[in-house]
Nucleic acid binder design. Structure first.
Length: 476
RNA sequence: CGGGGAGUAGCGCAGUUGGUAGCGCACCUGCUUUGGGAGCAGGAGGCCGCGGGUUCAAGUCCCGCCUCCCCGACCA
């Protein structure tokens, strides 16, 4: 007897599928204020794994965690012209406090360049103070008119790194180090999303940056998602906030800054890059629950055997959870864990136990095989390794197959209905109908995601457009 | 801000020519179940967005207000 679909099929309505997964996998729901979001325990458990993996890499790159205020004097934003222009439409401003109108309105941080800059100005005095690398885990607010859970919410969680360097070259190298060793490494090796790396066009650049580097992933509907950005800020903020230092020769200089961030939007990447019609598929290295040991029914010593398997798995360093909720039907629990995307499920039933085995089910491929109880831990570890590789490989194939070489703006229109298009950088500057190529792409709902060298490698910060390739796509 | 819809149980919805509130899912209790969303029986749950008006009587008709959703310009 055919049950109705658990989720709206992706092929039928991808945005609806996305909303269904977020709700049914118990990741998040909307808050009472438009654009706000409640992250539920399972969603937050995944985010905590994202944080842990990113935090380790950020610290390995030499940055230290700190915390700066949520409230920023409005005047700080006016000090850097491009920055204020870019952010003013989406600021939330507090005008009252303690029952009184405030002397100066206070901005709820949309990002912290300004307030951190004001402290860097105090802390940086000498070239010996540099480089100074800080990171903070925080919430930020950017007023949104079109919210989508995780992808675009008024308040979101992220990490933002802020560094000061003695030279432009040092700042440049550091921003690339973060891009590759923190973001790209995490996304490929943990999230199993094969990202493209490159430079943003002037139009897509962060407000106040001289250069923005980004990682971009392809979702299962062929649209692009920006997943982590690293900015070279030049000396603009240093001049605005007086971040100066004496160099070895006793010369007063302005510091070169960078900033870089990745947000809860990565949850959207996880969902849309790997999820299928049965729900989430969480890569094992990320999964808060790598294995669920499911008691089929409470007879024949199944509960005891399952508990022993969980203990053995945990002993071996596997994140395992026991599901003994036999007051709920077997099928319901299976569907529930599939929705949540637990990479491996071990089914422990009386029939299996009689044979001295359990059934190992893989979420990524749907395969089920009986394994001997004595080999369960080893088989689970093998399955987790294979699932991690297989999810990445599947996403890589999709990215490859969904990327088309084009030579004109017009060709991009069709190509970007289902994936990415690569066009010569020179096309972006080519004018027609009174618009340049990038504007014509934008007019048809397509944006330039990245500029790369033709072989896909990173360009120089100032490399001429004519020597580069533009990756264009519809984007979230 | 411009155009189009909707407000009824936790969620999704129905509610006829006005007659005092219903369905599915979820929830609670009991029994039987549990190897891919269990079945049966019983039960709980409502300021019908808010305010006014018409009427013997308003979820339904009239007026006003509020809120939310969808579509067009920016954004991780």
């Amino acid at each position: 007897m055919a049950k109705p679909d658990v989720l709206t099929p992706q092929a039928q309505d991808f945005p609806q599928w996305y909303q269904d997964v977020v709700a049914k996998a118990e990741l998040a729901e909307g808050g009472p204020v438009r654009g706000s979001m409640v992250i539920r325990p399972y969603g937050y458990a995944i985010w905590e794994r994202v944080q842990a993996e990113l935090d380790t890499r950020i610290k390995a790159a030499g940055a230290q965690n700190a915390y700066f205020p949520l409230f920023i004097p409005e005047s700080y934003f006016r000090r850097e012209a491009e920055h204020v222009e870019g952010f003013s439409p989406e600021l939330a401003v507090v005008t009252h406090g303690g029952g009184k109108k405030l002397e100066e309105p206070v901005v709820v941080r949309p990002t912290s360049e300004t307030i951190i800059g004001s402290y860097l100005a105090k802390w940086v005095q000498s070239y010996r103070d540099l480089p100074l690398a800080l990171n903070q885990w925080a919430n930020v607010v950017r007023w949104e008119l079109r919210p989508r859970l995780f992808l675009r919410t008024t308040e979101f969680l992220w990490q933002e790194g802020h560094t000061a360097h003695a030279s432009e070259q040092d700042a440049h190298l550091y921003s690339l180090r973060i891009l590759r060793d923190v973001y790209e490494d995490f996304m490929v090796n943990v999230l199993a999303v094969p990202v493209l790396v490159g430079r943003k066009t002037d139009k897509e650049r962060f407000a106040g940056a001289t250069t923005t580097w980004a990682t971009e992933g392809m979702m299962r509907d062929g649209k692009a998602l920006q997943m982590g950005t690293s900015h070279e800020l030049g000396q603009g903020f240093s001049r605005a906030f007086g971040i100066g230092f004496l160099d070895e020769e006793g010369q007063q200089r302005h510091a070169w800054l960078t900033s870089w961030g990745a947000s809860t939007r990565l949850m959207g990447a996880l969902i849309m890059a790997h999820g299928d019609d049965h729900g989430l598929r969480v890569p094992p290295r990320l999964a808060p629950v790598q294995v669920v040991v499911l008691v089929v029914k409470a007879e024949g010593g199944t509960a005891e055997a399952a508990a022993a398997v969980v203990a053995a798995l945990r002993e071996a360093g596997v994140r395992a959870e026991l599901d003994v909720r036999t007051d709920s039907s077997f099928g319901r629990r299976v569907v529930g864990w599939e929705l949540k995307g637990a990479p491996v499920r071990l089914e422990v039933g009386p029939r299996d136990l009689a044979e001295g085995s359990v059934v190992l089910c893989r979420r990524d491929s749907g395969t089920k095989v009986p394994v001997g109880l004595d080999r369960a831990v080893a088989e689970v570890r093998k399955a987790l390794d294979e699932a991690q590789g297989s999810l990445l490989e599947e996403a890589r194939r999709r990215l490859g197959a969904g990327t088309v070489e084009c030579s004109s703006v017009e060709e991009c229109q069709e190509a970007t209905l289902s994936g990415f298009a690569r066009i010569p950088g020179s096309v972006l500057a080519t004018r027609a109908d009174g618009m340049d190529g990038e504007a014509r792409l934008n007019a048809m709902g397509v944006t330039v995601r990245l500029l790369q060298r033709p072989d896909g490698s990173l360009p120089a910060a100032d490399q001429d457009l004519n020597e580069l390739v533009a990756v264009v796509a519809r984007a979230y």
